[in-house]
Amino acid sequence: MTSSRSERAGAPALGGDRPLIMLVGMGDLSARVLTMLLDDPATSRVVLAGRNTEAIRRRGNLALFTAANLGHHGSVDVEHVDLRNVEATARTLARVRPDIVFTGASLQSWRVITQLPRQVFEELDEAQFGPWLPMHLTLNHLLMQAVRAAGIGARVVNAAFPDAVGPVLDKVGLAPTIGVGNVANIVPALTHGSAHLLGVRPCEVEVRLTAQHYFSHYVPRFGDAGRGAYHLGVSVAGRDRSDEIDHRALFAQLDNRLKRLGGVDGQLLTASSAVRVLRGMATDSGVLAHAPAPGGLPGGYPVRVHRDGGRVDLPGGLALRDAVRINEDCQRADGIDRIDDDGTVHFAEREMSVMRRLLGYDCPSMKLGDCAEWADELGRKYREFAAKFD
């Protein structure tokens, strides 16, 4: 590809002080993020990291050549990284010295269970997302250990269940800088829906939403908030008009006139939310965004994005302690009852009972150090379950 060893070592590249952004885990989401990053000179200095270097090299070349067709010429390099080898990952990070690390790495994508027969999927989906935490926490834990060992001060942006991964790792001082997706994915629809109800243009509407993953997953599917706690602020041209919004009418639009494609296609929206954050960090812009787990907080918040991550920017009248409480309440609806000070996670019985009944998997609580073992067991039991429907 095009970048040199001096660039990988952190020397100024084509754009002078452009940050070096490393993408770890080159699945569908990271591939979409890469394409968008190369569309902007501020974010077009990229290194891809994963186990199959030939596959990600080809993926990188595809994105690089696509950008060239549109008149954009960035740089893409490739590094071998196996997150299960913390020492080797730390050495690579210390040599490459990325400014920002974006990770989409997970042991099992959220969308895997959507490939089950519809009735089976809907039954298993009653477990919500919380019980699947080991599949997303394990690799994040390993990556953050490697970042610490490398001693490079890179900011880490996490796309794998950041709402819960962030606060768990924060208990041991290893939280990623900020997350992406989830709360951010529902904000555009809420913006358009609010504009429709208020009779104004979407560009005049500013939404500030505090909510955990459960809310952003539930509302677009069912047109109501279910058991999810949340706080929604809506302003038009700087004037608060939150009291004029009928929440039931607003949410109903998301399962009707504002319903969108989900699944793999829907990852385009997650990628755009990620790039909004990554660009904000790359340019130190202070742009308003929505993101999960800024600084390791539970759930999702409106934030102002700067070089070092996201600063929570709540609507007037909502204190941070209350926003945290709302997210913790919403987290219980997602199947996580609480997170102890040592990072031990206690799962909600209602949701875990679904996993126990369907998969034979029962994890009432999980110490952080046992996460990888629980992930192995959950992965094995899910594969056995899914095989019945092949």
Rank of each mutant, 00 (worst) to 15 (best):
P364G: 11
D334V: 08
K367W: 12
K381P: 03
L314D: 00
P364M: 07
P315Q: 06
N327V: 02
Y361T: 02
D341K: 05
R350G: 08
N327I: 05
D243K: 01
R325W: 12
D284Y: 07
V303D: 00
D340S: 14
M366E: 00
G317L: 04
L318Y: 03
T270K: 01
I336S: 02
R257C: 15
R350W: 11
V287R: 14
D313K: 02
G262C: 06
R241W: 01
G263V: 11
F347R: 00
A372T: 04
A323H: 07
L261T: 15
D342Y: 11
R338M: 00
C330M: 12
D255I: 08
L254F: 08
M366Y: 04
R241G: 01
C363P: 07
D370L: 10
D337V: 14
G296Q: 07
L320N: 15
K367F: 13
E328H: 11
D240G: 06
Y361V: 09
D376T: 14
L269A: 12
R307A: 13
G262M: 04
V264N: 15
K259F: 15
D362F: 08
A319F: 08
V277R: 00
S353Q: 08
L359V: 05
R307P: 06
E244G: 02
C330D: 15
R260E: 13
M355D: 04
C371M: 08
E349L: 12
H346T: 03
D308H: 15
E373R: 13
D334T: 08
G263N: 12
G266D: 08
A291L: 05
D322T: 01
R311P: 07
V354N: 03
Y301L: 01
L297H: 05
L258V: 09
R257Q: 15
D362Q: 04
D255L: 09
E349A: 14
P315W: 07
V277K: 02
A249K: 13
M281I: 11
G295E: 08
D337W: 14
N327A: 05
L297S: 05
G310L: 03
R321I: 05
L268V: 12
G299K: 04
T283F: 10
A274T: 06
A372Y: 04
L297V: 09
V324R: 09
E377D: 15
F251D: 06
L261V: 14
R311A: 14
